[in-house]
Every structure is written in structure tokens, then in C-alpha cells.
Design a protein around this nucleic acid. Structure first.
Lengths: 222, 222
DNA sequence: ACGTTAAGGATTGTAGACAATCTTATGTCT
DNA sequence: AGACATAAGATTGTCTACAATCCTTAACGT
């Protein structure tokens, strides 16, 4: 029932997924006329959709010159990951004191699920990634900080996805990641905020270095 | 030369200052027609201006129902200050390792200026507040993290200002704040990132409690 | 051959009108 | 009197057209 009621919003979500999936590459131009031909309707809603993309930093608009999908420099990407690291650690710290016991139980259930999927090898890379995202999502929610949620899941999430989607998860990572997740949940259950934050920091940092080495490999291959 | 070249941008900046200054109170309605009558032009640019305000979380828009200046609940305000505290501490930590020696010298110069203005009593509350903002601004810039700057100075800044502008700075605070600023700069100059972060955290936390007590007083008076 | 400049085309910014939706006020019923 | 349904009014969402600006291409001069 939460279908986009307005055309502008519809086009906005379509474009968002297109960008995140890489169907629209960084640097690609978004002309209003092209969008009209692709999605139908008039220029006004397309214009509004583009503007909302700009608000989420998915496209960059230059007055009188049009909009392009953002193409981040290495330092800009570093900046984003730096902020994301800090905010998620903060979320984990807050979650340790603010999550309800029920929510913590749900975290345990999620871990169990994840564990089974790894043992059964049923979980392919994509599914495991979804599980990982779900884990982080719940902890962010558990911080009970609306603005924090908005920043991490609304703004930063898409950008991070956009530059991570194409890269496949490494094969050996999931079991180790699961162990890290377990320890984090235990720290939260023990209401040890500082430990939970520390573990989350370590967890994300290793996943970042993992990503960096993989990006470096791809860079070298080309 | 950075004059807004487009009408939409012009209206956007006008409305931003109007909201921050409190000329537009939280909950006030922003009808496109009203803006046309006030600023001239057509509905299209007004619409775009409103949309950009929404992107900065200064107004909230409901489809087919119009836009209103955001009116934050107490918990939402707490959430914002929580995030702002964390991000500024992060900025301070990064600044301690990334600021150039020249930039640190400029910080010292700013402190001196500030000190003189207090001694001469020439600085009224408004001027002192500007000095305080300048101090924080430079440290954020010194973090050399573009996204961090964007979040703190672009998004959170206006909201915080909006709920702080009306309240006058307490009389005894400036000298103490200056001392805290001095220590922070010294920590940065010593390249002691952790200390700088700690001092900044303490500094902001006291200013927050200061604000809260003053808000409580105003609340009680009404 | 290269840089500069001017005209043409394409794209964005703005304007005004119509259609769809919500809000408000009125009237009716219980 | 209060709650609910209905209709008028107002507001937003969308469409089309026009003006302003930018980008491209081609011509020109050095």
C-alpha cells in the first residue's frame, strides 16, 4: 500500500534502483527529455525526481547544464566510509543500551538463520549479503535515533551500495563475519555499550579493508 | 559572484534564513501560491525551493497536502544533538592529524581575537556567538572530510541554529568557553587526536546542558 | 594546423493553465 | 449536541509552451 502515489516519486525510486544496481554508471547524463521518453509523463515530474536524487547525493546537478550520476573520487569514497564507520559504531553503542530484550532476541534469531544458511551452503553470495545488511539495519534501528537512521539508511546506504553492488563477496568472509556478528550481539545483550562499539568498529574496518583490496585487484586487472 | 543565478535558489536561501531566524515558525504552512505573491515569479521555482528545503530537513512535505516548517519533538531534537555531538568530535579528532600548521596558527589567531573582544566587552552576545561558530567551522573544515563537512555545516547546522537562534547566550559562558577552545587548540597543535576529541566532547556537552536548562527555564516561564 | 569566435541546436529555467486531490464548511441524521 | 456524509473551495501534481542559458559545430583568422 506504500506504492508511490505520485509520478515523480515513482520515477525517483526507479532511478534510485537503476543507479544502485549500476544500470546507470557514474558520470552518465540524466536529461529530462530522455526520462520523459523512458518513463512517460511530462518534464515536471522528471525534474522533481532528479532533484530528489540530488538531495540524496546520487546525482550532481549544475545549473543550466543538467544532471549526472555522481562519480566519486577515491578521497570522497574514503570520506563516506569514514563517516559511515563512525555513525554505525555510534548506533551500535546506543543500541546496547536502548534495544529491548525482544529486539535482542530477534537478533539472535537472525544469527541462527544466517548460520543455517551458511552451513547448508544454500546461501549464495547475494543472500548472505542481504543477511549482513539486515543485521546492520536492525542495530541501526535499535539505536532509537531517528536522525541516525535517516543518515545511515537513507543517505549513505545507497551510495555505499552503489559502489559495492558489483563486487562479489569474498568466499571466506561469511563465516568470519558471522563470528563477529555473534560477538557484537553478545556485547549488546550484556548491555556493554563500549565493547559493542569496539567490536562493530573492528568488524566494519575489516570489511572495508577487504573491499579495498578487492577494488585494488580489479583496478590492477584492468 | 556566488549570487544565486536561478530564482529557485534565491527563494531557497531567502526561506532558509527566514526559517533559521524564526520569522517562519515551526509548523507554519508554506503554500506555493503565497510564495509567488511574496517573492514574485511562477509556481515552478517556488516548488523547487520548497523541495530543496525538504532535502535539508527544514520543511516537511506531504503529498497533495503541502509543506510545513518542521516542528521537532523533544526526542527528535535530542537525536539531532546526539548525532551532531558525535560527528563534531569525530571532526576534531581528524583535524588533530590533518590540519596544516598554518591552519592551526589561524586557529590561535582566532582565539586571540576572541579573547580581545571579550576583554573589551565590545563583543555582544551575537558577535561572540559568531566567533564560536567560526571556531567550530574551522575545525570541521580541518577534518578534510568533505562528507562530514556537508553533514555538519549543510544539514545539521541550520536545524541547530533554528532552535538556538532565539535563545540568548548566557552571560558567564563566553570566558569559560574560550578556555575550553584554547585547550582544544592546544591538543590539536600537539597532534593529540584522542585528547582533542575528548575535550571537544566535553565542550559541546556542557553547551548542550546549558541550552537545555535555559530551554527548561523558558518552558517554565510560559 | 591551431586557437578563437559566432551561429545553430539542444537543454534547462520559468510561466501559465488544467486535472487530481485534499481541506474546510455546511447540512443531515442519530 | 455530536458524528458523519457531502459539496464547495483551495492547494498540489502535471502538462504544454516559451524564454534563457549552455554546448557543439563550423567558419574564420592568425
Amino acid at each position: 500500500m506504500s506504492e508511490p502515489m505520485t509520478l515523480a516519486e515513482k520515477v525517483f525510486t526507479e532511478l534510485t534502483t537503476a543507479i544502485v544496481r549500476g544500470e546507470l554508471r557514474p558520470g552518465d547524463r540524466l536529461s529530462e527529455q530522455t526520462l520523459v521518453e523512458r518513463y512517460g509523463g511530462s518534464r515536471a515530474p522528471m525534474r522533481e525526481a532528479i532533484q530528489r536524487l540530488e538531495a540524496r547525493n546520487l546525482v550532481k546537478r549544475v545549473p543550466h547544464a543538467g544532471a549526472r550520476v555522481v562519480s566519486l573520487t577515491t578521497t570522497e569514497l574514503r570520506d563516506i566510509y569514514e563517516v559511515r564507520l563512525e555513525l554505525e559504531c555510534m548506533a551500535c553503542r546506543l543500541a546496547a543500551t536502548r534495544m529491548t530484550d525482544d529486539e535482542i532476541q530477534e537478533l539472535y534469531a537472525l544469527l541462527k538463520e544466517h548460520e543455517d544458511s551458511i552451513a547448508a551452503e544454500q546461501g549464495l553470495a547475494y543472500y548472505q549479503k542481504a543477511g549482513d545488511l539486515d543485521f546492520h539495519y536492525r542495530i541501526i534501528k535499535g539505536s532509537k535515533n531517528s536522525r541516525l537512521y535517516q543518515m545511515l539508511c537513507g543517505d549513505l546506504y545507497h551510495i555505499v551500495r552503489m559502489y559495492r553492488y558489483q563486487t562479489s563477496t569474498s568466499s571466506k568472509r561469511p563465516p568470519q563475519a558471522l563470528q563477529e556478528h555473534k560477538r557484537i550481539v553478545e556485547a549488546i545483550a550484556a548491555r556493554d555499550a563500549e565493547l559493542a562499539e569496539l567490536l562493530m568498529r573492528r568488524h566494519i574496518q575489516t570489511s572495508i579493508t577487504n573491499l579495498e583490496t578487492r577494488l585494488a585487484e580489479e583496478e590492477g586487472r584492468q
